[in-house]
C-alpha cells in the first residue's frame, strides 16, 4: 500500500527561540532549521512499514518555502521514495495545510497518511485531524503503536488517562507521538542516493486551493519569565522556607 507522510520545516528544537524586538514574531533569520521531530517519527514509521513489506511506496510532502526541499531530501535519505513540494511563501495555517494535503491525497490515493501530532513552532496540533475530517477518514491521533491488519489499522494512542487502542478502516490518518519509534539517522550513501530521487514541485493554485489567513497574529511577546530564586543549604531549610516563607505546604 502507498503511504503519504507530511513533514514540516521548523526551527531546530535545540535552538533558543528569540522574540523579535518589534514583537511581530520569532526571529528566524540565520537560525538552524530542521524537520519537525514528530515528522521524523512519522517518516521512520513509514520506513518501518516498508521494511516489513506492508508499505509499497512512501511519498513525502512538505508545504512551505523552497528551503523545505531540504527536509524532503532528508526524508528521502531516510527511506521515502518520492517527494512533493508545495510551494508557499507566506503563512500557511493549519486549515490550509490540511486542504493542500487533501488535494494531494485525492491525487495519490494513499492507504495511510502519517503526520506529526504537532509542530514544535506553532504547537497547534490540528493539521492531521483537519485532514482526516476533510477527506472523511478515521484518525488515530498521538499514536504510540500502529499495526496494519488487512483493511484495518489498529492504533494505540497516548491519552490523558493512559493508553487507548482504536481500530480504523483504511484509508486512515495517523498522527505520531514521541514513543512510536526512535528515528534512525540517514547514512551518507543514502543522503547521496536521495539527491536522485524524484521531487515534484507544485503550487497551491495547481492544487486548486486558495490560501486564506483566517488568523492574524497581532503580536508575539517574550514570556514573563521567572528569575532564579535562592539556593538552600539543606532539606531542613527547604522545608522551613516552604512552610513559613512561601506558605505552600
Amino acid at each position: 500500500m502507498k503511504v503519504l507522510v507530511a513533514v514540516k520545516r521548523v526551527i531546530d528544537y535545540n535552538v533558543k527561540v528569540r522574540v523579535k524586538p518589534d514583537n511581530t514574531g520569532v526571529d528566524l533569520a540565520n537560525v538552524k532549521m530542521a524537520m519537525n521531530p514528530f515528522c521524523e517519527i512519522a517518516v521512520e514509521e513509514a520506513v518501518r512499514l516498508k521494511e516489513k513489506g506492508i508499505a509499497s511506496e512512501i511519498v513525502v510532502v512538505s508545504i512551505g518555502p523552497k528551503a523545505c526541499q531540504e527536509q524532503i531530501r532528508t526524508a528521502l535519505a531516510l527511506g521515502a521514495d518520492r517527494g512533493i513540494h508545495i510551494e508557499a511563501d507566506g503563512d500557511v495555517q493549519s486549515l490550509d495545510a490540511a486542504k493542500l494535503l487533501k488535494a494531494v491525497v485525492e491525487k495519490e490515493e494513499p492507504k495511510l497518511v502519517i503526520l506529526g501530532k504537532q509542530s514544535i513552532d506553532s504547537d497547534n496540533n490540528q493539521t492531521g485531524q483537519m485532514l482526516a475530517a476533510l477527506t472523511g477518514m478515521g484518525q488515530g491521533t498521538f499514536a504510540s503503536e500502529v499495526v496494519v491488519d488487512g483493511e484495518k489499522v489498529n492504533v494505540t494512542r497516548e491519552v490523558d488517562g493512559g493508553l487507548m487502542t482504536l481500530s480504523l478502516n483504511l484509508p486512515a490518518v495517523v498522527t505520531t507521538d514521541l514513543r512510536l519509534n526512535e528515528p534512525r539517522y540517514a547514512s551518507l550513501p543514502n543522503i547521496m542516493k536521495a539527491k536522485k530521487k524524484p521531487l515534484d514541485t507544485m503550487s497551491a493554485a495547481d492544487l486548486g486551493v486558495e490560501i486564506a489567513s483566517r488568523l492574524t497574529t497581532l503580536k508575539v511577546e517574550a514570556p514573563a519569565g521567572r528569575s532564579a530564586g535562592v539556593k538552600v543549604a539543606d532539606v531542613a531549610e527547604l522545608v522551613d522556607k516552604l512552610k513559613n516563607e512561601a506558605k505552600v505546604i
Binding site: 520569532v26 514544535i120 504547537d123 488568523l215 497574529t217 503580536k219 508575539v220 511577546e221 514570556p223
Partner: peptide, 10 residues
C-alpha cells in the same frame, strides 16, 4: 507558541 518561549496574541 514555541514551547512557551513566545506568547502570541491572535
Amino acid at each position: 507558541i514555541y514551547a512557551g518561549n513566545a506568547i502570541a496574541t491572535v
